[in-house]
């Protein structure tokens, strides 16, 4: 179907126009899909939280509450956008777009199956790490511009946190790149046809995965690293003064970021759309199912963290990164390099 649309576009229009139209169509498809996916993740979070907490969760709107987040989104859309009088209006309004756009941009490079990948660049992983740091600028802007002390503290915490944990994310992914030898996501998947990287790289890969999950949770500002919002300390943190759709952007971005973090882990550690032992290799489109399935499992893991652990304090957050994660990570890279050099990886 994608092929026919592609051919039809190029046959009716000049090449330049056609490629632009095609890009817009793809962008719209992604935007629509992930707006809904974000809402679904919010619903999932609420349900999962409820089940952890001996509750039932949303069960009124739609079948077992399935339309609850849809209704919430509609409510937020129709809500008045308020702001503080002394806020820096331009930056205040700009901040949510930084966050949401950077979140959506990251989605472009994921290989959902062999064929569905919008943007397969040769520095895929690097692109993802770069993009995911831009969102922090939005949080900093929002906290700074809303002229609220609680928001400012939250924003400053976010800056500290992002600078520290960006390192761990990068280094733990770098550990895995040592096996693949490529930053391109499609090639990383190709390498994993001989076994997922977490199995190929065995011990260092598992350590790298753990570090990645910890740093990834911190990167998305979720509990136990939700210093940015820390509702028992800062009220609502950086988005204290945001309301309506601008708040919804922050909220949606958090969940899309969570998806991105889980999706990177799926791609790099768990073989993206590859099925376990190649059981559905003959049916390529099932790759989407495997990709989303693995991602959802990892997202569930992050939700499990959130509803179990207490929050760290800001200085402990930094201690964890600089005294534990970073040194372990550096040693881990050396071990991985040795393993790859001595050809000790497990391949099927």
């Amino acid at each position: 179907m994608i092929e026919t649309i592609h051919n039809w576009l190029y046959s009716t229009m000049p090449q330049g126009v056609a490629s632009i139209v095609e890009m817009i169509l793809i962008a719209l498809a992604y935007l629509g899909f992930f707006a809904i996916a974000g809402l679904f993740l919010v619903l999932m979070e609420r349900k999962v939280a409820a089940w952890f907490q001996l509750r039932i969760g949303p069960n009124r709107v739609g079948f077992y509450g399935s339309l609850q987040t849809m209704a919430d989104a509609l409510k937020l859309l129709s809500k008045e956008l308020t702001g503080t009088a002394k806020a820096d209006k331009f930056l205040y309004n700009l901040a949510p777009y930084f966050v949401i756009i950077s979140a959506l941009m990251g989605l472009a490079v994921f290989p959902f199956t062999k064929d569905i990948q919008a943007f397969d660049i040769n520095i895929g992983i690097f692109f993802l790490i770069a993009i995911s740091s831009i969102g922090v600028i939005g949080i900093l802007l929002g906290g700074w511009a809303s002229n609220n002390k609680f928001a400012l503290i939250g924003a400053m915490r976010s800056g500290v946190q992002a600078i520290s944990y960006e390192l761990s994310i990068g280094l733990s992914l770098l550990t895995m790149i040592l096996i693949t030898g490529s930053l391109q996501l499609s090639e990383i998947v190709e390498v994993q046809k001989n076994g997922w990287l977490i199995i190929q790289g065995h011990i260092p890969a598992i350590i790298a995965f753990m570090i990645y999950m910890i740093a990834g949770t911190a990167e998305t500002n979720r509990a136990p690293f939700d210093m940015v919002e820390a509702e028992s300390e800062l009220g609502a943190g950086f988005h204290t003064e945001y309301s309506g759709m601008k708040f919804a952007y922050f909220f949606l971005a958090e969940f899309i970021n969570m998806f991105i973090i889980a999706a990177i882990a799926t791609t790099v550690f768990f073989g993206a759309w590859l099925s376990p032992f190649g059981i559905t290799e003959s049916i390529p489109w099932l790759g989407v199912f495997w990709f989303l399935g693995k991602t959802l499992v990892l997202i569930f893991l992050m939700m499990w963290f959130r509803w179990t652990f207490p929050r760290l304090r800001i200085d402990q957050l930094l201690t964890l990164e600089w005294k534990y994660l970073l040194p372990i990570n550096l040693v881990n890279i050396v071990i991985m390099a040795l393993i790859v050099w001595l050809n000790l990886t497990i391949k099927f």
Binding site: A49, F52, Q53, L54, A223, A230, S232, W307, P310, R311
Partner: peptide, 16 residues
């Protein structure tokens, strides 16, 4: 106490 330090589920277990 659990909720204040960020572990939200404790609240429900305590209240149960």
């Amino acid at each position: 106490m659990g909720m204040d330090v960020g572990a939200l589920s404790t609240f429900f277990y305590g209240f149960r």
